[in-house]
Design a protein around this nucleic acid. Structure first.
Length: 809
DNA sequence: AGCACGCCGACT
DNA sequence: GTCGGCGTGCTC
């Protein structure tokens, strides 16, 4: 009897595909195995989700067979697979796509067929003949194709399937070359061991220090070649080891990793614990007790910057590790917080695997494999680290849980923080969400008793900074309608900082030089020709840039409306501020930190290092400066326009502002150097600002929760967003109407349809429909119904279903 | 997503 | 006459 496998294929089509299992795999193929399958005209890597003996309800000639099993053992751990299944359903994303997002890059690539020139083909080209020895002539199209195939690694794509290609193939001038899908490495390690005794070897290596050193290192048994390389360096090993081997002094061999007992045991007991403050100790005790009970409790670790959340994570993880459990730690952007990585590294050494996208694909696969093999048990990384194949998961930490970067903005629109809670629950692991400014969602979970809130008040390492508010409305009145980018109060503060050789951070949530450029003749703002977005003036290149599509045009280009050429620029971005500060503060050395700077590789680290080591006095930046960097000499933080983020038209604007201002202000001051914050704003009385500056998070949460409850917005409802995009504005509007109608007839609470706040990006018109439901299950049901009930959607339109959407622009 | 198939305009 | 444009439908 034939048996079948349900296979997930990484394509954006819903559902699983059923393949027949060939006899030779019938005994071994298991759930989680990676397989090569024929898919349409291609071969693709799929994942076995299940096995069945029931023949699929398909014409039998349609059922194809699995070609190969790609790994000796199932690649995907069971718990990751079940989490992926959950995510696929919850976020309405095809399972194959979820798995693609969950695994390190390269493990899901399809095999590639390329058309390459054969030896005969190359010989023919270099001979310069126009006809083959057989007398057969070759057409111009054939020759062009042959030349293309002879270049580089050959060619692929539709051109490789033309008639000319078939003819060349028949003549033997070109051939298909198949590159197989990636295979997991054989999971073997290369080891070296002694092949003779010291007494025998000694005369041979006495006068060769490198060889002698290697031999000595093998005294207590075989060692991994990799370990020797780490100790003595690649060069020394490269020279000495082959000679030792050739002389029969040592032997090298490959052993399966499972049999390799020389692998160093990861340090189970971490060292270097800091002593804890009472709040930290209480919080830790609660977490440890849950760990000991294996009770899958979830906690909110709520504490301001400097209250010592990281130390609690570290000790909780150390405890889990001592019990033999693994850990996952999610951070917003690991690349922005090298210090956090260093602390984990100090405490846990090789037991930590850092996974971020800056790591090359090969290395990411290697690290992933180390976790899979249980060689390291702590995964640290951004959102995607959620999927790390950590064995026996004991604890999941989400640091800065409110951070929007945990929500993936494309493909599978999952929220890493939310899935972390799911994964922890499934694994019976403890979850710890940490933040100084928790999301309303998490806070609501705590207030309704579904997770336990652990509060950390400020520790002795830091005192609360003093705050001074500059009311820009008043400032404008005094300045007769003009406002200064940097108020007198802030300017004085900066001067003082520079004089005292301390440091300051200036925060402005806008890049560029001038933010708005108007035509002097008709007054029209220069907007992007492809997006509904004002262009930003970047002085360095004398260009206007669109921050949504990166399109640039010269500053001097004529107005699109009236063709006028006189332009006037208003507003300010970080670039302008940096210049202004350099001009107005004598002796100030200024660094800038924003995406314009960090788009160059390594520039971020270089800037942060330079500032930390005191090469500059003032750091001007966007929200990047708010992330968890530790700058001990910063005593002044200036927030240039605190209400900028309040102007964003979405219901979370106040929450974002509160979080941002709190985070930025938290950069100021240490116990020994008290900090000051100068805040410039047009709305000094706004509750989000007031609460942030009074360090009164509770007040903010009470007000905001009441507003959300009144409006029945999250966290008092679940929000799904349907975004409709099309090059055709009328089609987008029409479909949005249909979506809203479908939602209403399903009984969901609908807001919209409406043009998106950013009505057009990259020449695609955008409309939004918000779907609100009381529970996740009901939201899911409504969204599914909407998707199914829609009639004919032109292919040119895109429908994006975003569950628990954060980005409403 | 890719890829094939299919039906209409400018060129060897 | 064909090469190639992108609309449409399918992938076990």
């Amino acid at each position: 009897m034939t048996s079948y496998a349900e296979v997930a294929v990484p394509v954006p089509v819903e559902g699983r595909f059923t393949y027949a299992i060939p006899d030779h795999l019938a005994g071994s193929l298991a759930i989680g195995h990676r397989v090569l399958v024929p898919f349409g005209t291609r071969k693709m890597t799929g994942f076995v989700l299940g096995r069945t003996d029931v023949a699929p309800e398909l014409a039998s000639d349609k059922v194809k067979s699995i070609l190969e099993c790609l790994d000796p053992e199932p690649l995907i751990p069971g718990d990751v697979l079940s989490l992926a299944t959950f995510a696929s359903e919850y976020y309405m994303a095809p399972i194959g796509e979820v798995l693609k997002a969950a695994l390190p890059p390269g493990l899901t690539t399809a095999s590639d067929v390329r058309l390459v020139a054969t030896k005969l083909g190359r010989a023919f080209l270099s001979s310069g003949e126009t006809a083959l020895p057989s007398g057969e002539a070759i057409s111009r199209a054939q020759r062009a194709l042959l030349e293309a195939c002879a270049k580089g690694s050959g060619m692929k794509g539709p051109k490789a399937r033309t008639r000319a290609a078939a003819e060349l193939r028949a003549m033997g001038l070109v051939a298909d070359k198949e590159e197989l899908a990636l295979r997991a490495s054989g999971r073997e390690v290369e080891i070296v061991e002694r092949a003779m005794t010291m007494r025998q070897a000694f005369p041979l290596i006495r006068r060769a220090p490198a060889r002698r050193r290697i031999f000595e290192l093998l005294d207590d048994g075989p060692k991994e070649v990799r370990a020797l390389v780490e100790i003595l360096g690649r060069e020394a090993i490269g020279r000495a080891l082959p000679r030792l081997e050739a002389e029969g002094i040592v032997a090298r061999r490959q052993v399966p990793i499972a049999e390799w007992e020389g692998a160093p045991e990861a340090a189970l007991l971490a060292t270097g614990h800091q002593s804890l403050f009472p709040d930290q100790a209480t919080a830790l005790a609660a977490i440890l007790s849950a760990l000991d009970r294996r009770s899958s409790d979830a906690f909110l670790l709520h504490g301001v910057t400097g209250s010592g959340k990281t130390e609690v994570y570290l000790q909780a993880i150390a405890h889990a590790r001592a019990r033999g459990d693994g850990a996952i730690v999610l951070v917003p952007e690991i690349a922005l917080t090298p210090q956090l990585e260093a602390r984990f590294r100090d405490r846990f050494g090789d037991d930590v695997i850092v996974l971020h996208s800056a790591v090359a694909d090969r290395e990411r696969r290697r690290r992933w494999q180390r976790l899979r093999d249980g060689e390291a048990r702590i995964a640290l990384g951004p959102r995607s680290a959620l999927w790390a194949p950590v064995e026996r998961l004991g604890i999941v930490v989400v640091d800065e849980e409110h951070d929007a970067s945990f929500k993936q903005g494309s493909d599978v629109r999952y929220n890493g923080r939310d899935l972390a809670l799911v994964r922890a629950r499934q694994a019976k692991a403890v979850a710890v969400l940490g933040s100084a400014t928790p999301s309303l969602e998490t806070l609501h979970l705590a207030r309704t008793g579904r997770i336990t809130e652990l509060k950390l008040r400020v520790g002795a390492r830091r005192s609360m900074p003093s705050v001074r508010i500059v009311d820009l409305t008043e400032e404008r009145r005094e300045m007769k309608g003009d406002i200064r980018l940097i108020s007198r109060a802030l300017e004085d503060g900066l001067r003082e900082v520079v004089e005292k050789k301390e440091q300051a951070i200036l925060f402005l949530n806008r890049r560029g030089f001038n933010t708005i450029v108007h035509c002097d003749d008709c007054g029209d703002a220069r907007t992007c020709s492809r997006c509904d977005v004002s262009l930003t003036h970047h002085k360095s290149g004398a260009v206007l840039r669109c921050h949504y599509c990166d399109h640039v045009e010269p500053f001097a280009a004529p107005c699109r409306k009236c063709k006028g050429v006189a332009m006037r620029a208003f507003g300010a971005g970080t670039e302008r501020v940096a210049e202004l500060v350099t001009e107005t503060i004598p002796g100030a050395r200024v660094l800038r930190l924003d995406r314009d700077i960090t788009s160059k590789a390594g520039a971020l680290d270089a800037t942060l290092d330079a500032f930390r080591s005191g090469e500059a006095d003032i750091l001007v930046g966007t929200q990047m400066v708010a992330k968890g960097h530790d700058f001990p000499r910063v005593t002044l933080v200036g927030i240039l326009l605190a209400d900028a983020s309040l102007a964003i038209p979405e219901f979370r604007a106040a929450e974002r502002t509160f979080q941002l201002v709190t985070q930025v202000a938290g950069r100021a001051g240490r116990a020994d150097l008290p900090g000051r914050v100068v805040v410039q704003t047009f709305q000094p009385e706004h509750y989000a600002l007031r609460s942030a500056l009074d360090h009164d998070g509770d007040r903010f949460f009470e007000i905001e929760l009441r507003l959300r409850e009144g409006a029945e917005y999250p966290p008092f409802a679940r929000l799904g967003l349907v975004r409709i995009e099309s090059k055709d504005p009328r089609a987008a509007e029409r479909i949005a109407g249909e979506v809203a109608a479908a939602g209403r007839s399903e009984g969901a609470r609908i807001k919209g349809p409406a043009p998106a706040p950013i009505g057009k990006i990259k020449d695609r018109y955008r409309h939004l429909v918000m779907v609100l439901a009381p529970t996740p299950a009901k939201l899911s049901h409504a969204m599914r119904k909407i998707r199914r009930s829609l009639g004919d959607i032109p292919r040119s339109a895109d429908l994006i279903f975003d569950i628990d959407a954060l980005d409403l622009l």
